[in-house]
Design a protein around this nucleic acid. Structure first.
Length: 1024
RNA sequence: GCCGAAGUGGCGGAAUGGCAGACGCACCGGAUUCAAAAUCCGGCGAGGUUCACCCCUCGUGUGGGGUCGAGUCCCACCUUCGGCACCA
């Protein structure tokens, strides 16, 4: 009695594909046909093999790509479809801390679980190409690429033609080609090396890390929540540490520009553009002199005495007499131009509104700005130091969270506005970030909301310099900042208009003003046009064990201290393996884990006698995922990271599918590395991923939540309060009377009327009905209930385990259900009865072909070698056409409905011609490959159908003799007429007019107009 | 706050500007069965009308606008979800 038995069929075909290497991609070298129009590279975002195994979210994207690949193979495409593991990362290391198990062992176990699970779903990966970022032979090349980045500097002015044949400006060039200024060269070899190091795309920089003293370890950003450790809720400090940075900002412009032609959704492109955050404006130097006082001749350095001089300045008097040293400085600038480095006598600021320079009434520098000490006068010293200390302890989050309240402190010093010679006080405030622009701003309170807020709080002068357009209404935010100044209600204006109080520029429009003043400042050597990015350089080091070690050595002096000079490992010395560690306990200080390595790993003496210490930071998890798509093309190559001919054939990835959570960082980082490799001639395309699709998240089953006041609840075995009918209904309050509140970081529900807190409880669906907009309790219709699907999480207990689904319904059902749920890119809730539904469909397909009453597997007696009827052929070819088009559009849910329609129609018929069932099985095969293979075999074919040509929809079977055409009167449907398929306008109109339901309605009325669309519809517009 | 996506039956969803609700789930009725499971057939937006077949009105978040005709296009707003959030 063989029913549809997924448990029998699926392992059988998985073993068959394995044994026959059905999905093995032939090597490019062995291909006679290198026609690139035939190649298709389809890539899934490879998973992090976590200890909890596969999640139902994974097979969603993986099934979609698998369908595309199986479909493409049957259309004769040469498909590359690999899978691997993004296996470095924290959890394995944390497990090691707890149990002492080496992360490599944990990782291997997890990978084995993932591989088994993926194989059980029947994906057509070429498992010969499986790679893990933790493989020694893989990260050897990750380290190699790092060395390429290390060996590169960015020349923004370089004009060249890339491997793609395009002419462009700006190139990552070998460090050996970096021009060395004569004065640097004169200082000797060491100075040259340090100069080069400053220009590399991989460079070192002091940056704060999250150091948690209680845990004795450095934490990743995602392990820090609200300034405390996620684990244990201990305080986290920000301590500066030497870090590796990658100069991604050098590529910001190209990362924006090259986005344009890609086949990505516009919203992802916008997300990336916003992340890069390009802004255009000007850099302007404000003179602070040798302490903003007087300067005798030349451009003397500030020095120790500088701050004292500033202290002598009179307090905030705008438009005071410019000092003579300011004049001297200006003429020096006019003669020599705007210097690349600002020097010590000026504060360099960045602004997008150079047109508001006349309204600058003070300046602000970030607490970390290098000029803080210099500009602080003796009497302000204590206040400034206290402020900066406090600021350094705040995390970025604290600084932004406290946005409502501006803080700051006056340095005691003044700067001089280059456009009008006004003396403006210099303040320190943490609303200015050291990491953006120059870390210093000119404040124009009249036209900047933040500056306004600050100026109001500290009573600094506000000078309007932009006249709003005549019918300007202040925006919401502007109005919110309304303040009483000198007895007058005023608010800031951040928009564009015409200049006032701006000397000879009065009357100029904002746009024109910007252009003019930028040009004039440039001519006077006081400023220049500048572009800034919100994007920061990429902090590329972690203090972990389970990441790629850096192939870098630090030179040590006689005392064993690092000199700051570095030596990369030679290519032939790669890979740099992990040192052996006995235990994985944290170091107990902010030093990286690898500093616990044995001496012989940490130190060596170079041939020239210099003592060297290894870099002890490790690379972030992003590193391995930045280039895996390249390695998949040539995973076993021991000579190159990828063979150039292979790269040229397969790249770019034609379709890349993954979660939207990687829409920004992973894609940006990978694109950046790809561009560096392109500039250095290692890859032939500018972009790695031609088409990108983000699958939507799968949520848990819909839950109904009620709110309960007072006692009377039961307790679940896990100890959570629980409701059942036995509790009655008296304790419920309406969901619409409940508000969500944050109390000490936890969200709690409170009853609006009394403020008392209430319990949220799950209510079974059978207690609920729909009323109007929402849901209510059947028993208590006044009580409204929340209905929502939540993200799957262990704590909520709504996680669906794919293994269980496969066990109960089979992989084909899981695959089909995930595709049938709705559009791939949409967020959608899980529903077990939906799985049941597609399972029943597969059962119907089975019975349409196989005899489920026989004792062994054989064809249904209704399936016969008889010619198909016209109607059957039309059904088949309509289905072929629709399914084919839907797969091409990646509209898998509608493709499946089409196949259901076919089955509904054909399965009841007898006899069922083999000739229409066979093509149908082929249509089904990308979606439910195991069942399709089994039925294909049953229909008398040997071997796999994986390379059988895809059925073609033939037009001749699609034409209908008669069609139904809707007839409307005044746009409302009134009848349907049957007419011959090719009926022209006149015939259609005639048929419509004479229709028994229409004729009486037209009688005696004037037909004002008649719209006839052949093959579509007829509409009479009548009067009277 | 800014940017993006989306609001269609009880639920998931379908509809090149042309018959709204395909397909599936849930539910209801029937057949089969000793009975059940499984399976098969039928019904299923709301309201009205009718013995019945039929037919009519309303209906795609809200309000407006264009069109012979709008779920689809335009304007304004509301709600939900995602991202960013002192970036000068």
């Amino acid at each position: 009695m063989p029913r549809y038995d997924a448990q029998r069929i699926e392992p059988k075909w998985q073993a068959y594909w394995d044994k026959h290497q059905t999905f093995r991609t032939p090597d490019v070298m062995g291909l006679s046909d290198l026609d690139r129009t035939r190649k298709l590279y389809v890539l899934d975002m490879f998973p992090y093999p976590s200890g909890s195994g596969l999640h139902v979210g994974h097979p969603e994207g993986y099934t979609a790509t698998d369908i595309v690949c199986r479909f493409a193979r049957m259309q004769g495409k040469h498909v590359l479809h690999p899978m691997g593991w993004d296996a470095f990362g924290l959890p394995a290391e944390e497990h090691a801390v707890k149990t002492g198990t080496h992360p490599r062992i944990t990782t291997e176990q997890n990978i084995n679980t993932f591989r088994r699970q993926l194989k059980s779903l029947g994906f057509s990966y070429d498992w010969n190409r499986e790679i893990s970022t933790t493989d020694v032979e893989y990260y050897r090349w990750t380290q190699w690429i790092f060395l390429q980045v290390f060996d590169t500097w960015y020349d923004p002015a370089f004009e060249w033609t890339g491997k793609d044949g395009q002419r462009r400006v700006g190139k990552g060039r070998p460090i050996a080609e970096l021009p060395i200024p004569a004065d640097v060269k004169a200082q000797g070899e060491e100075a040259v090396r340090r100069y080069q190091d400053r220009h590399r795309l991989a460079y070192q920089h002091e940056a704060p890390v999250n150091w948690c003293p209680a845990l004795g370890t450095v934490l990743a950003n995602e392990e820090v929540v609200d300034g405390r450790s996620e684990r244990g809720n201990h305080p986290v400090e920000r301590v500066p540490l030497r870090q590796w940075m990658l100069r991604i900002t050098a590529y910001a412009e190209r990362l924006i520009d090259d986005l344009e032609p890609l086949d990505w959704s516009e919203s992802i492109k916008i997300l990336q553009r916003n992340w890069i955050g390009r802004s255009e404006g000007a850099e302007v130097d404000f003179y602070v002199g040798a302490g903003a006082g007087s300067v005798e001749g030349g451009m003397g350095r500030g020095g120790e005495g500088g701050t004292a001089a500033a202290g002598e300045s009179s307090p905030s008097t705008l438009n005071a007499q410019p000092s003579t040293s300011f004049d001297a400085w200006k003429s020096h600038r006019a003669a020599n131009g705007f210097p690349a480095e600002p020097g010590e006598d000026v504060l360099r600021i960045y602004t997008t509104r150079p047109d508001t320079l006349y309204g600058a009434t003070y300046m602000v520098i970030a607490p970390e700005h290098p000029f803080v000490a210099r500009l602080t006068t003796a009497d302000q010293k204590d206040a400034v130091e206290a402020y900066c200390r406090k600021a350094s302890q705040k995390s970025d989050l604290d600084r932004t969270d406290l946005a409502k309240d501006k803080t700051g402190v006056f340095t005691g010093s003044y700067a001089i506005n280059p456009v009008n010679g006004a003396r403006v006080p210099v303040w320190i405030a943490d609303y200015v970030l050291i990491s953006y622009g120059t870390g210093a701003i000119m404040a124009v309170p009249a036209h900047d909301l933040r500056d306004w807020e600050f100026a109001v709080k500290f009573q600094l002068p506000i000078i309007p310099v932009v006249q709003p357009p005549a019918k300007h209404e202040p925006s919401k935010e502007e109005r919110a900042l309304t303040a009483t100044i000198n007895g007058e209600e005023r608010c800031p204006f951040a928009g564009e208009g015409t200049a006032i109080n701006s000397g000879r520029y009065d009357g100029t429009t904002t746009l024109e003003f910007k252009k003019q003043i930028t040009a004039e400042l440039a001519k006077a050597g006081l400023g220049k046009k500048a572009v800034n990015y919100r994007l920061r350089d990429w902090l590329f080091s972690r203090q972990r064990y389970w990441g790629e070690p850096f192939p870098i050595w630090h030179e040590l002096d006689a005392q064993g201290q690092p000199t700051g000079l570095m030596r990369p490992d030679k290519e032939t010395e790669l890979p740099v393996l992990h040192p052996h560690l006995e235990d994985f306990k944290p170091t107990g200080n902010p030093e990286p884990m690898l500093s616990k390595a044995p001496e012989d790993w940490l130190y060596k003496t170079a041939a020239d006698g210099v003592r060297l210490k290894r870099e002890t930071n490790s690379m972030p998890q992003w590193a391995g995922s930045c280039w895996y798509y390249l390695r998949f093309c040539d995973p076993k190559n021991t000579q190159h990271f990828i063979d150039p001919a292979v790269e040229k054939y397969w790249l770019p990835v034609d379709l890349y599918v993954g979660g939207a959570d990687h829409a920004v960082l992973h894609l940006l980082y990978a694109r950046f590395w790809h561009k560096v490799l392109f500039d250095r001639g290692h890859v032939s395309t500018v972009e790695p991923f031609q088409k990108l699709v983000n699958q939507g998240m799968i949520l848990g089953e819909v839950e109904f939540t009620g709110f309960w006041r007072g006692p009377g609840l039961e307790t679940s075995p896990e100890g959570h309060p629980q409701w059942s009918t036995a509790c009655g209904f008296a304790g419920f309050v309406s969901a619409r009377d409940v508000a969500e509140k944050e109390i000490e970081g936890n969200s709690v529900h409170v009853f609006r009327r009394s403020g008392e807190s209430v319990q949220s409880v799950r209510v079974p669906a059978d207690q609920i009905e729909k009323k109007g907009e929402g849901f209510i309790l059947k028993a208590e219709p006044a009580i409204s209930i929340d209905a929502r699907a939540f993200k799957m999480s262990k704590s909520r207990g709504n996680v669906i385990n794919p293994d269980k689904v496969v066990e109960q319904y089979g992989a084909d059902s899981l695959r089909l259900y995930e595709m049938f749920m709705g559009p791939l890119e949409q967020v959608k809730p899980w529903s077990m009865s939906g799985v049941e539904g597609v399972f029943r469909f597969l059962g119907r397909v089975w019975r349409m072909v196989a005899d489920d009453r026989a004792d062994d597997v054989k064809l249904s007696p209704a399936v016969q070698d008889v010619p198909a009827s016209e109607a059957q052929l039309r059904t088949l070819h309509k289905t072929i056409k629709a399914v084919t088009e839907d797969i091409e559009k990646m509209s898998f849910n509608t493709a499946i409905s089409r196949m259901m329609e076919f089955t509904n129609e054909i399965s009841g018929q007898e006899p069922r011609p083999k000739s229409i069932l066979e093509p149908f099985v082929l249509l089904l095969s990308p979606f439910a490959p195991h069942l399709a293979e089994e039925l294909w075999e049953l229909l008398g074919h040997g071997g796999s159908l994986a390379y059988t040509p895809w059925p073609r929809a033939e037009e001749k079977y699609l034409v209908e003799n008669e069609v139904e055409i809707p007839v409307q009167i005044n746009g409302k449907l009134r009848a349907v007429v049957r007419v011959p398929a090719g009926a022209d306008q006149a015939a259609l109109k005639a048929a419509a007019e004479s229709h028994e339901a229409i004729a009486p309605q037209l009688a005696g009325k004037t037909i004002a107009k008649c719209v006839v669309v052949p093959g579509r519809m007829v509409n009479f517009v009548v009067k009277g």
